[in-house]
């Protein structure tokens, strides 16, 4: 992508020292200890609950047969990791999420861009897509299995469908709400349709698009579980099913823990990748 118009590439030579004190100073990183402190703060409640449950089980206040103590869950996770099984399942799940997310996001962005910019496409496509969106995505599963078999394809397609709708809605909504006044700036400078799209519309819709991608990614993880629950021989969802069938709550919790970590990491990765595109945003999070 050409980011020439997004990054401040036109900075004046004489102003490079200003960049340090000006924009650079504004967006400087927080002191490391504050960042670390916030991280610890976020862990406080989950760790506290885990510790409380561990102590309660040890003290015999609760019996850990159906709700195993954290030590046993971690032990199971460790065993799975050491045997190499965990990585097989993680890889299977992440591959499905990644393929489904990429497919769903690509089609979502394409359809959103089409309906957002071309009235004909909007009138033609949007009502149908809105109706399809009203269908719970899981309702497609039987059809996907009939059409696409029971292997990887229906799983990836289901995830893609789940990712598609929030991305589609987010992108077309972001385009619809682009400030007309900024578009007029483009008109005054006689931008061609293509230049208008690249230099005004694209940067203006990026924030909304990225929010919708994050929502889509979250739904990708939701639907990978659904897909794997319905029949899979590997994947974290398979660990869930197997844990239920063989009465291994520690394995179920281990898989859930893995989902929590993977989901958070995937979201953090998406945020980190897109942050350079949104440095200009005056977000309240910087202040609060």
């Amino acid at each position: 992508m050409s980011t020439g118009s997004i990054s401040p590439a036109l900075g004046l030579d004489a102003g490079s020292s200003v960049a340090e004190s000006g924009r650079g100073a504004r967006s400087r990183a927080r002191p490391a200890w504050r960042h670390g402190g916030r991280f610890v703060l976020g862990l406080l409640i989950p760790l506290g609950l885990a510790l409380g449950w561990e102590l309660a089980t040890r003290a015999g206040l609760a019996q850990g047969r159906l709700l195993p103590p954290p030590s046993r869950v971690l032990g199971t996770l460790l065993t799975l990791a050491q045997s190499g099984d965990l990585w097989v399942h993680v890889r299977a799940t992440l591959t499905r999420v990644a393929l489904g997310f990429l497919g769903g996001a690509a089609f979502g962005i394409l359809a959103g861009a089409l309906t957002g910019t071309l009235p004909l496409a909007r009138h033609l496509l949007d009502p149908g897509l809105q109706a399809l969106r009203a269908v719970p995505s899981l309702a497609w599963v039987p059809l996907f299995i009939l059409w696409l078999g029971i292997l990887e394809t229906p799983k990836v397609v289901l995830i893609a469908v789940g990712v598609f709708f929030p991305v589609y809605g987010g992108v077309s909504g972001a385009i619809a709400s682009v400030d007309r006044k900024l578009v007029e700036v483009g008109r005054i400078f006689r931008l061609s349709r293509l230049a208008l799209a690249r230099r005004i519309l694209l940067p203006a819709v990026l924030p909304g698009t990225i929010v919708s991608l994050r929502t889509g990614l979250g739904l990708g993880f939701l639907f990978v579980v659904a897909a794997e629950l319905m029949g899979a021989s590997e994947g974290l969802g398979y660990l869930l099913v197997e844990g239920q069938q063989f009465g291994k709550p520690d394995q179920i919790l281990a898989a859930i823990l893995a989902f929590a970590v993977l989901g958070k990491l995937a979201d953090a990765l998406l945020v980190a990748l897109t942050r350079p595109l949104l440095r200009w945003q005056d977000v309240s999070r910087d202040v609060l």
Partner: peptide, 14 residues
Amino acid sequence: FQEPRLLPWLGIAE
């Protein structure tokens, strides 16, 4: 224009 209408994603020089 009546308002500056600067593009928020560009620096002042740009």
